Simulated scan of single mutants.
Amino acid sequence: MLTILLYDYVPDILQRREPVRPGHLALIREYYEAGRLRLAGAIGEPIHGGLLVFTDEASAAEFVLRDPYVLNGLVTAHRIEPWHVVIGA
């Protein structure tokens, strides 16, 4: 079982994320390299949210508390859910 973190973003995310995006991507890289994060990316066209797949719930919850997108008001809501994978790598 994995854990997903779903973000809803502010409508003007593409404009507002630029100052904090390097920190957000660095945090993603940190969790990925530590083996705690499997996948991450934006949702929608235009982008309206994000999806991150973690190895456990604690990692997802900790990530939210550290994420520059959350700390700077770019995330309007988030959910952490267990993901019961049926098939996949």
Rank of each mutant, 00 (worst) to 15 (best):
I43R: 13
H24E: 01
F54V: 05
I28D: 07
Y9F: 14
Y32M: 02
P82D: 15
L14R: 14
R16F: 10
L65G: 15
A77N: 14
R79H: 15
A34S: 07
G50N: 00
A40I: 04
R16P: 01
L39I: 10
V20G: 01
E45S: 15
R16Q: 05
P22F: 04
G49I: 04
L6V: 05
P19K: 02
L25V: 12
A34E: 09
E30T: 13
V85L: 14
R66K: 15
T3I: 00
P82K: 12
G44V: 01
L39A: 10
A58I: 11
I47D: 02
D12V: 03
W83P: 02
L65Q: 15
D56A: 11
E81N: 12
L52Q: 01
L71H: 09
R66S: 11
P82L: 13
V75H: 03
P19R: 03
H84D: 15
R21N: 03
I80F: 07
L37E: 02
V70K: 10
A40W: 09
L74Q: 06
A77M: 03
G44R: 05
H78N: 11
V53P: 01
I13C: 02
V10G: 05
M1H: 07
Y32A: 10
R66V: 08
A61Y: 01
E30H: 12
I28E: 04
H78E: 08
R79P: 13
D8H: 12
R38I: 13
E81V: 15
L65C: 09
V70T: 02
Y31R: 06
E81H: 14
E45Y: 10
R79F: 09
E18T: 12
G41V: 09
L5A: 00
R17T: 01
R38A: 11
H78Q: 09
P68A: 06
R66W: 07
P46S: 07
P82F: 11
Y69F: 14
E33D: 10
I43M: 13
V10N: 02
A26W: 06
E33K: 10
L2D: 13
G50Y: 00
T76M: 07
Y9Q: 04
I4P: 00
